[in-house]
Design a protein around this nucleic acid. Sequence first.
DNA 1: GCCGGTCTGTACTGAGTCGTACAATCGCGC
DNA 2: GCGCGATTGTACGACTCAGTACAGACCGGC
Lengths: 238, 238
Amino acid sequence: MPVPSQRFIRNTLLGALDLRDYEAVRAVAEPVSLARRDVLIAAGQPITHVHFLESAVVSEVTAATAGRRIEVGLTGREGFVGVPLLLDVDRTPYESFVQIEGQALRVESAAFLRLIQAHDGLRRCLSLYAYVVHLQTADTALSNGTHTLEERLARWLLMCHDRVVGNALPVTHAFLSTMLGVRRPGVTTAIHSLEGDGGIRARRSQVEVIDREKLKAAAGGSYGMPESEYRRLIGVAP
Amino acid sequence: MPVPSQRFIRNTLLGALDLRDYEAVRAVAEPVSLARRDVLIAAGQPITHVHFLESAVVSEVTAATAGRRIEVGLTGREGFVGVPLLLDVDRTPYESFVQIEGQALRVESAAFLRLIQAHDGLRRCLSLYAYVVHLQTADTALSNGTHTLEERLARWLLMCHDRVVGNALPVTHAFLSTMLGVRRPGVTTAIHSLEGDGGIRARRSQVEVIDREKLKAAAGGSYGMPESEYRRLIGVAP
DNA sequence: GCCGGTCTGTACTGAGTCGTACAATCGCGC
DNA sequence: GCGCGATTGTACGACTCAGTACAGACCGGC
């Protein structure tokens, strides 16, 4: 029976596990391809699977019927989708959907619950990630409350760039406006401004990151705290 | 040795526990009085105690050195302060301080870790609360991003009212402006508006809640989601 | 009863964003 | 290579809130 080498593990959360815990996850995990707009967790519906992302990027958004949508969480290969299950919660009022297509390892909910019951190291590792998610959401609350549209956009692009292979982010202005909870023409203006600074290059349905340092400067300090906590608690991010 | 009756438990999280789990907590918990401005968790410092609040109200705020402060979490007798410890995290970049004085039961960190290791029912219950905290923070991100100052103020007053005995909230305009991350005169104006609607009555260093329904209307749908999830997952809130 | 700090009320200008509308551009499918 | 939906660029008035300043009101201490 072949023992997979750690270097083939694309999800960094799984990569941080003891080999024994990792093997236990791998034994019940199923590789899946995720297409844009796939809904991994539907608002108010029981969570059926946990997804450890390998190359896909997933957004968690509020699903206010009357109000507007806005993003409250962003997950890539540094994390997993299904934190509520870890906390013994079977469903959530928010929706998690695929923003950028890619691969993932999925585990059926009941199997996942057995896993974290039996493997304390796994539970600890996923708990650390759950806390980073909380930090990210709190940071988003801060950003939404006190930063300008341009700063928030720069922060979002950096966070997305962290989770993508390459520098091209396949997003439209309208999509960004929903994620940030702002007006679409406002995004167009902010993108022009960031482009003028040399941080990005904009194409149709795509933003290419050119200079992360310039983007960080444009983010006005709104980027980086959850990321550095991830490194402190879990290890090197991708 | 007297066995405390459930009805003497003022913290509703502890009240939701099996008697056996509760006794285990009570055995290592120490009653303390918390004064306004006491810092329960300092930014970046190891967390020394977990606090189950009985009548005090505690705010979690970002502690951005360069940037502004803003509230990302509010806890009263429905919860506990020290969620990071539950998730195996020893410190946090945010600060938790006492906003309204009162009583609490505190448990030393090492004892707390032993407790949740030995009592799975306790861990589950606290995990549910940790999830509600996440919802509350996500809801704050939504509010900060899409609601007006007046709506956000109404939401905050309702959330604080939920956690206080009586209808008088001892807060100043300047304090509210920090919690909401807005300008102090803006709070003054918004308070006048809510007062005109008949939802509250304002005095020096105090806001009295007169009509919750009017406040809810003024909150424009920004209030209530985490509260109803608390009831679904844990039980009747105070 | 006065003093000094805290709290509240009000005013003004400017920045940022909204809501909306509409034209221009792109790129895929037939 | 044409058409059509999707995407992007731009404009304009309106409104919210920021930043700042300052005066008046309150309240506890001496």
